[in-house]
Amino acid sequence: MKLLNIFKNFKNDESGAVTVDWVVLTAAVVGLGLIVMNQITPAIDAAGAQITTDLQNATALGRQP
């Protein structure tokens, strides 16, 4: 009978439910961040390459060498 009460108390205990909710929510936010990062990385790389090209072709104070 005592063992049955232990199982009933364990089944009815909800003290860890909030922790599970936060873990799931955090995993969803991290997953969404990875998806967004994966989508914008090519545009950021292209912008960086264009900036590099512009800086390499720039002349000091607009003067021609």
Results as ranks from 00 to 15, higher is better:
residue 64 Q to W: 06
residue 57 N to C: 02
residue 58 A to C: 05
residue 21 D to H: 05
residue 25 L to K: 13
residue 12 N to P: 00
residue 55 L to D: 05
residue 20 V to L: 09
residue 7 F to V: 10
residue 28 A to I: 13
residue 48 G to L: 12
residue 38 N to V: 03
residue 24 V to N: 05
residue 16 G to Q: 12
residue 51 I to Q: 12
residue 44 I to T: 03
residue 34 L to G: 14
residue 16 G to N: 09
residue 47 A to E: 14
residue 42 P to H: 02
residue 10 F to R: 12
residue 63 R to T: 08
residue 50 Q to D: 14
residue 52 T to G: 06
residue 13 D to Y: 00
residue 33 G to R: 03
residue 65 P to N: 09
residue 26 T to G: 11
residue 7 F to M: 14
residue 55 L to P: 01
residue 61 L to R: 05
residue 57 N to R: 12
residue 8 K to S: 14
residue 23 V to H: 04
residue 53 T to Q: 14
residue 2 K to F: 13
residue 57 N to H: 06
residue 52 T to D: 13
residue 58 A to P: 03
residue 2 K to V: 14
residue 2 K to T: 12
residue 51 I to S: 07
residue 4 L to H: 08
residue 27 A to P: 01
residue 3 L to E: 15
residue 25 L to S: 10
residue 40 I to E: 02
residue 20 V to Q: 10
residue 2 K to C: 07
residue 44 I to G: 00
residue 37 M to G: 15
residue 30 V to F: 15
residue 65 P to K: 06
residue 48 G to P: 01
residue 65 P to G: 07
residue 5 N to F: 13
residue 53 T to F: 09
residue 4 L to G: 06
residue 62 G to I: 00
residue 43 A to W: 05
residue 44 I to E: 01
residue 36 V to R: 05
residue 62 G to S: 01
residue 13 D to T: 00
residue 11 K to G: 04
residue 15 S to D: 09
residue 31 G to N: 02
residue 57 N to T: 08
residue 3 L to R: 10
residue 30 V to M: 13
residue 53 T to Y: 07
residue 19 T to I: 06
residue 20 V to D: 10
residue 19 T to P: 00
residue 58 A to F: 05
residue 9 N to V: 02
residue 24 V to Q: 07
residue 10 F to Y: 11
residue 55 L to C: 06
residue 40 I to G: 02
residue 54 D to M: 11
residue 50 Q to K: 15
residue 4 L to K: 08
residue 26 T to Q: 04
residue 12 N to Y: 02
residue 10 F to C: 10
residue 58 A to R: 07
residue 14 E to V: 09
residue 45 D to G: 03
residue 23 V to A: 08
residue 40 I to Y: 15
residue 60 A to V: 12
residue 39 Q to D: 06
residue 12 N to F: 01
residue 51 I to K: 08
residue 50 Q to C: 03
residue 26 T to F: 11
residue 17 A to I: 10
residue 7 F to L: 14
residue 46 A to M: 08
residue 25 L to C: 04
residue 55 L to S: 05
residue 14 E to N: 11
residue 27 A to F: 09
residue 52 T to K: 12
residue 31 G to D: 01
residue 50 Q to A: 15
residue 64 Q to C: 04
residue 47 A to Y: 13
residue 42 P to R: 01
residue 13 D to C: 00
residue 61 L to E: 10
residue 30 V to D: 03
residue 2 K to A: 15
residue 65 P to D: 12
residue 37 M to P: 00
residue 5 N to H: 09
residue 20 V to S: 06
residue 45 D to A: 11
residue 55 L to R: 08
residue 29 V to W: 02
residue 35 I to D: 01
residue 65 P to Y: 06
residue 33 G to D: 07
residue 19 T to N: 13
residue 24 V to R: 08
residue 64 Q to D: 08
residue 16 G to M: 11
residue 31 G to M: 04
residue 22 W to A: 05
residue 57 N to L: 14
residue 62 G to C: 01
residue 21 D to R: 11
residue 28 A to R: 08
residue 52 T to V: 07
residue 20 V to M: 07
residue 40 I to K: 11
residue 33 G to W: 02
residue 22 W to H: 07
residue 42 P to W: 02
residue 33 G to F: 08
residue 46 A to E: 15
residue 30 V to S: 05
residue 46 A to V: 04
residue 52 T to L: 07
residue 7 F to Y: 11
residue 56 Q to L: 14
residue 13 D to E: 02
residue 54 D to P: 01
residue 28 A to W: 04
residue 2 K to L: 13
residue 10 F to V: 10
residue 33 G to N: 15
residue 59 T to N: 13
residue 15 S to E: 08
residue 22 W to Q: 07
residue 9 N to E: 14
